[in-house]
């Protein structure tokens, strides 16, 4: 829709500010330092990729940014409001109004069909059943599976399920969408289709995305790419979105590793 002009970062207000967050949790007897002091900003309309091997803390970082978890230390500001100070009700409202989530394992409700799964976030709201249904159908059309609307998740392929979950993430018209390994459970061809939908949402509708992945091929679509390792941001690079050639040693390494 609206193409963002070349505004300098500093003049834009970040939608999410992560400030020196640490996250420590207990795994049995051992303390795990999943995040050891991470800071980053996300600006409206951006597509951010957080890249890192498993166990690097990238999913933990996404959970803190998406108000699914509260950091042990540091702050996360969403639209200038500190989520570490919010109670569970306010966090729920924040997620309901501003955020959408896409998970690696889709996490659809098996008893409900595709269109019902899409309008789950609206169930506890005042939006009428009819309006919710209409909007859910519209979104299924947008992700290209309106003909599968009345199929249960177990009757859908992996790619179709992930598209249902993308539609679910869009139902409340969020400003920012978090995706945790959105292509992780998909073969490369279906993965590409899903990425294409994400790219369109970002470029044409201006939706902000934060995507966590270990798949380096996603960097082509990104505004910025953060490489995280052992709970710390190791590199920040520009992505390949606006014609930049993405360059990073570690990513090259990653790619080579994958080919082996």
């Amino acid at each position: 829709m609206v193409k963002k002009g070349k505004v300098k970062k500093e003049e834009r207000k970040p939608i999410i500010e992560v400030r020196k967050i640490k996250k420590t949790y207990l795994l049995g007897e051992t303390k795990v330092h999943a995040l050891r002091g991470v800071s980053l900003n996300v600006y409206p309309g951006e597509l951010i990729i957080i890249l890192g091997p498993s166990g690097s803390g990238k999913s933990t970082l996404l959970h803190q940014m998406g108000a699914l978890d509260i950091p042990t230390e540091g702050k996360v500001l969403v639209d200038g409001l500190d989520i570490t100070q919010m109670d569970s009700w306010n966090l729920s409202m924040l997620r309901r109004k501003k955020m959408g989530f896409i998970f690696q394992s889709f996490n659809l409700i098996p008893t409900l069909d595709a269109v019902e799964n899409v309008h789950i976030p609206l169930l506890p709201t005042n939006v009428s059943e009819v309006a919710a249904h209409r909007r859910a159908m519209h979104l299924l059309k947008e992700v290209g599976i309106e003909d599968r609307a009345h199929h249960k998740p177990n009757q859908l392929s992996g790619g179709e399920r992930q598209r249902v979950s993308i539609a679910r993430a869009l139902i409340n018209d969020p400003e920012i969408i978090f995706a945790d390994e959105p292509t992780g459970n998909l073969d490369s061809k279906t993965g590409e289709k899903v990425l294409e939908i994400i790219r369109k949402l970002n470029e044409e509708e201006g939706k902000t995305f934060v995507i966590v992945t270990h798949d380096a091929s996603l960097v082509e679509f990104a505004d910025r790419v953060f490489i995280i390792r052992d709970g710390l941001i190791e590199e920040e690079n520009l992505g390949g979105k606006n014609g930049h050639a993405y360059k990073s040693e570690s990513v090259e390494l990653n790619k080579r590793k994958r080919k082996k």
Binding site: G66, L68, S88, W89, S92, M93, R95, R96, K97, M99, G100, F101, F103, N107, I109, I120, P121, L123, P124, R168, A169, N172
Partner: peptide
Amino acid sequence: EIGVLKAVGWTNNN
């Protein structure tokens, strides 16, 4: 599933 419901904005009461 309950985690997902909460992630998509359901409150404790919901």
